[in-house]
Design a protein around this nucleic acid. Structure first.
Lengths: 159, 159
DNA sequence: GCCAAATCAGACTGTTTCGTTCCGAATTGC
DNA sequence: GCAATTCGGAACGAAACAGTCTGATTTGGC
C-alpha cells in the first residue's frame, strides 16, 4: 500500500527537471544537488525515466537531460508506472496474470478493479506542470482539490 | 504501489467469515479450507484481525471466530489497515512522521495528500456485505461502480 | 584523426520487509 | 483433573528494495 521511495524520489526529480525546461540540458549531478538526493540514486532514476520515455538523454561532453514531452503531458501516473511498473493493487487486476485459483467465481475481484481504476485516475489527473507550481502549499492544495473533484465529476462512472 | 498478499488474503478470509454469521463460531481451519489458503497463514491473519478489533476470538474446545461488528460496518479500508497499518502512499502523509528534509517548501506533498484521501475514500466505501454478495461478477461490478460513483458525488470536494 | 573529458547505462552488494511456518499459552468440555 | 481444541506470539527463509560502484558510449577540442 505504500509507494516505494524511488517512486517518490522520481517525482521530485522530474519536478526539478521541469523547472529547467528553458535551458535544454541538465546533468543528473545538478538535479541531485537541487533535490538533495544522493547522486547515484538520481542516476538510477534518470536511467529508468529515460527508458520509459519520459526523459531524453544526450551523451557526451555538454550533454544532459531534458523532458521528452511537454510537462503538461506528463502525469503522476506516468512517473509512478515508469519506476514501479503497471499500477495494480492486486495481482488479479494486472493484465496477463491469472495466478488466482478462484478467478471466475471470486466476488472480491470486481471491487479491486474499481478501486484500482479510482487510484489510477487520481494519479493521472495530476500533471507535472501543477507539481512544479511555485504557490504556497495551502494554495496548491486548494487548486489540486478542485481539479481532482471536477475530474471525478466529469469522468462520472468511470471515475 | 501493490497491495501485500496478506492484505488480499485478509479480505478473502473476512469475506468467508461473513458468510458464517449465523453459526457464531468458525474455526480458522474451516476458513482455510473454504478459501483454499494455507492454514498457518489464516492463523496469522485472524491474529492480526482480532488484534485490530474486526474479529472476536473465543478459545477452548468448541471455540472459534465471529465478526466483532456487523458486516455492514466493516469496510475494505478497515481490513487493509488492520494488516498493513495506516494507509499512506508516502511517508510524508503519515501522521507523526517528519522524515522529509523539504517539509514546508515541498510542492509535491499537498498532491500526495489528495491522492491518498481519494484512495482511502474508495476503500472506505466498499462494505463487507457487498463483498460477499452472491451475484454474478458482472452484476456485482455494476453495483459497485454505481456505489462508488455516487459516494464520490456525495463526498464531493473531500474525495 | 586523435585524445580527453563528461555523460549515461547496466551490474553488483547489503539491507529491509514480506511471507511462511512452527511451537507454546490459554481455555473449555468431559 | 484431564485432554482436546483453540488462539497467540516468536522464529526462520525468501524476495524485493535501496544504494553504490564500475564500465561503455558519445561529444568537443587539439
Amino acid at each position: 500500500m505504500r509507494l516505494s521511495n524511488l517512486a517518490d524520489y522520481a517525482v521530485v526529480t522530474m519536478c526539478a527537471a521541469a523547472r529547467h525546461c528553458g535551458s535544454a540540458r541538465v546533468s543528473a549531478a545538478e538535479l541531485a544537488e537541487e533535490t538533495g538526493l544522493p547522486a547515484p540514486t538520481v542516476q538510477k532514476l534518470v536511467s529508468l525515466l529515460s527508458r520509459a520515455g519520459l526523459l531524453r538523454a544526450t551523451r557526451g561532453s555538454g550533454g544532459g537531460l531534458q523532458l521528452a514531452r511537454p510537462a503538461a503531458a506528463i502525469t503522476l501516473a506516468d512517473i509512478v508506472e515508469a519506476v514501479e511498473g503497471p499500477i495494480a493493487l492486486t495481482s488479479c487486476v494486472e493484465q496477463g496474470r491469472h495466478d488466482c485459483a478462484l478467478e471466475g467465481s471470486c466476488n472480491v475481484r470486481p471491487h479491486w478493479t474499481i478501486v484500482n481504476d479510482a487510484l489510477r485516475g487520481a494519479l493521472a489527473n495530476v500533471p507535472l506542470t501543477q507539481l512544479s507550481s511555485p504557490f504556497a502549499s495551502s494554495e496548491v492544495e486548494k487548486q489540486v482539490r478542485e481539479r481532482v473533484s471536477t475530474s471525478l465529476d466529469t469522468n462520472g462512472v468511470l471515475l
